[in-house]
Design a protein around this nucleic acid. Structure first.
Length: 308
RNA sequence: GGUCUGAUGGGCGAGUGGCUUAACCAACGGUCUGCAAAACCGUCUACAGCGGUUCGAAUCCGCUUCAGACCU
């Protein structure tokens, strides 16, 4: 359609989003094979080593069939976030598009996809000591005290945030305090220009079927040795990487807070809730076009129509 | 055939005449700029049916239906 205008673009990034368990990974491999493309993950948890089962990382066969990036390539101790992801992924894509016309990006982390496609503003990363201090204050003085300070430092943002959400309040404070300027002033909300074409597709299926798949997949994970995987990680349970569905619930079980059966049920429930949040996120981004994960032909046709 | 007990929102489960939207769970909807598989917000006004008593009934009475237990 606007191919001539796109001449500066170096290739097409096929972004696949959608709820967990909806068949994103398998679809990605299919598309990657069809378009001779490598795959980069947009999943905030599959990047870690030692979490293969619980995060449903691509199988060995899938990884042998197609080159995957951002899968199990760092330690759970490594700090990683959407900002670093943006930088690293962009650098990688720069390289990949030198020899590929297509790259497939799959994963369930909406924020990571946003970072990759639209970019993050140049805000400071978390400062460990400041973060610890704010956390301390949250515990001793309470959220309302932090909210008051935010009102003082950034009344505009205080007006729009959910002041009940301590995570958001603290991050805003973090930015205000480290930069000396209001957080809201530094949020441009602008969409970064990318040197590649982007096509977003999301996988969807009837809710009841999706939930059934999620439930079954959890049972399958347990059969595949998830509990052992969790045991290895148990000593590191406090790490952010392990604040993850499929791990926390079993940590609680090891702590005697619930039975194994209850833990498994909770993993299922929390996975379902996660899936729902993902659907909400991806629905909000109107650039996503939804398909049944098995409707490969229609998806390929759609991609061919919009690729450069 | 008879006696008794029970019947509360998707589930569980309080509540014995007038301020319960009980609570909890599930589910559903949503928010989203560096911990995002995180963090957080909102919604779900039921009392088996019919009739009666009463100023007022989920709560008392009667009948009906259903369920369970027991008796002959």
């Amino acid at each position: 359609m606007t191919t001539m205008m796109m001449s500066s673009k170096r290739g097409t990034l096929i972004v696949i989003g959608g709820p967990t368990g909806s068949g994103k990974s398998a679809l990605a491999v299919e598309l990657a094979k069809h378009f001779c493309a490598p795959i980069i993950s947009t999943d905030s948890r599959q990047v870690y080593r030692g979490m293969a089962i619980g995060t449903a990382q691509p199988t060995k066969e899938e990884q042998e069939a197609v080159q995957h990036y951002f899968i199990a390539d760092r330690e759970v101790e490594d700090s990683f976030n959407c900002g670093r992801y943006e930088v690293e992924a962009l650098a990688l894509l720069d390289r990949l598009f030198k020899s590929n016309r297509y790259v497939v990006a799959v994963g369930g982390s909406g924020l990571y996809i946003q970072a990759l496609c639209s970019g993050m503003d140049a805000l400071p990363e978390a400062n460990e000591s400041l973060r610890a201090e704010l956390k301390q204050r949250l515990e001793s003085e309470g959220l309302s005290s932090l909210a008051d300070e935010l009102r003082r430092l950034d009344p505009k943002y205080a007006e729009e945030v959910d002041l009940c959400n301590h995570a958001r309040v603290m991050r805003a404070l973090e930015v205000c305090l480290t930069t000396g300027r209001p957080y809201s002033e530094q949020r441009s909300g602008s969409v970064a220009k990318r040197p590649f074409n982007i096509i977003k597709i999301a996988t969807d299926m009837p809710r009841d079927i999706l939930y059934e798949r999620i439930n079954k997949r959890v049972d399958q994970m347990v059969e595949n040795g998830l509990i052992d995987e969790v045991k290895h990680l148990y000593p590191k349970r406090e790490l952010n990487a392990l604040q993850t569905v499929g791990y926390r619930e079993f940590f609680d079980h090891f702590d005697g807070k619930c039975s194994m059966e209850e833990a498994i049920e909770l993993v299922k429930r929390n996975s379902r809730r996660y899936a729902k949040r993902q659907m909400t996120w991806f629905s909000r981004d109107k650039e996503f076009v939804w398909f049944a994960p098995t409707d490969i032909e229609a998806i390929i046709e759609h991609i061919n129509r919009f690729a450069i």
